[in-house]
């Protein structure tokens, strides 16, 4: 579904990612683990064409997307849920969803705003309120819903649990499982190992821009050495 091979990414002059490769297959949830600044968000932004990538290849559905602008990549069906949520605070919940709307795509479900309100009942009650008045948890729901409105074939979910109360994180877990149940693969970036453990099939560990470990989630949970060395548990 998504295949990244040997990418190098830069912020200005700073070399952030070195030779990063990873794959995401249909129907699976893959987590990218690593501490702050390790390159998790940069990896996701590189896939979305939001960071300068100088080498390597990023193939989605067998087609090269490296070098395309973010909007073209999103149009191909890659749904991006940013860290820090980035909802439009002055637009109503309904308008936020409208912004994410894309034409129906072959092979993926065609989501409507009503589907979103079924999936996230909190948002239904708030549909005419400005996004900025929502709580942090509701905003996280809204940003996921907004991305689903684009009928994505694959979702990049960047640090969805950051700064959220445990009770809200548990709700996000349910949502991620629901997305998986719909057959949409998810590339998740996380710091919370509990969260990752509850939803992921496979894991990559990234540190200072290098992929240091790759394996199933279960293997990682049993590999104390990797967990201590790269995740500082």
């Amino acid at each position: 579904m998504l295949e990244i091979r040997g990418i190098h990414s830069y912020y200005g002059q700073a070399h952030i990612l070195t030779d990063v490769s990873l794959t995401l297959s249909k129907g699976e949830i893959v987590v990218l683990l690593g501490r702050n600044g390790a390159g998790k968000s940069t990896t996701i932004k590189s896939i979305m064409g939001m960071v300068r990538v100088t080498e390597g290849s990023i193939a989605y559905d067998g087609e090269e997307v490296l070098g395309e602008p973010a909007n073209r990549i999103a149009r191909r069906g890659l749904g991006y849920v940013p860290e820090e949520r980035r909802i439009f605070t002055r637009l109503s919940v309904q308008e936020n969803l409208d912004c994410g709307r894309q034409p129906a795509r072959e092979g993926t479900r065609n989501w409507t705003a009503d589907d979103m309100f079924d999936l996230f009942p909190n948002l239904a009650e708030a549909r005419h309120r400005p996004g900025g008045t929502l709580s942090g948890g509701e905003q996280q729901m809204l940003t996921i819903a907004r991305t689903l409105m684009g009928n994505p074939g694959c979702i990049l979910l960047d640090e969805p649990s950051e700064g959220l109360a445990p009770v809200v994180v548990e709700q996000i877990i349910k949502v991620v499982k629901e997305i998986k149940a719909q057959g949409i693969p998810v590339l998740l970036s996380e710091q919370n190992l509990y969260f990752a453990g509850l939803v992921s099939d496979r894991a990559y560990v990234i540190e200072t821009g290098h992929i240091r470990y790759e394996g199933s989630m279960r293997e990682l949970e049993e590999n104390d050495e990797v967990r201590q060395q790269y995740l500082a548990v």
Partner: peptide, 14 residues
């Protein structure tokens, strides 16, 4: 706030 305690707890393994 705390929920069911799935996402924290040093003594609990996920």
């Amino acid at each position: 706030y705390l929920g069911e305690g799935q996402v924290y707890g040093q003594d609990k393994k996920p």
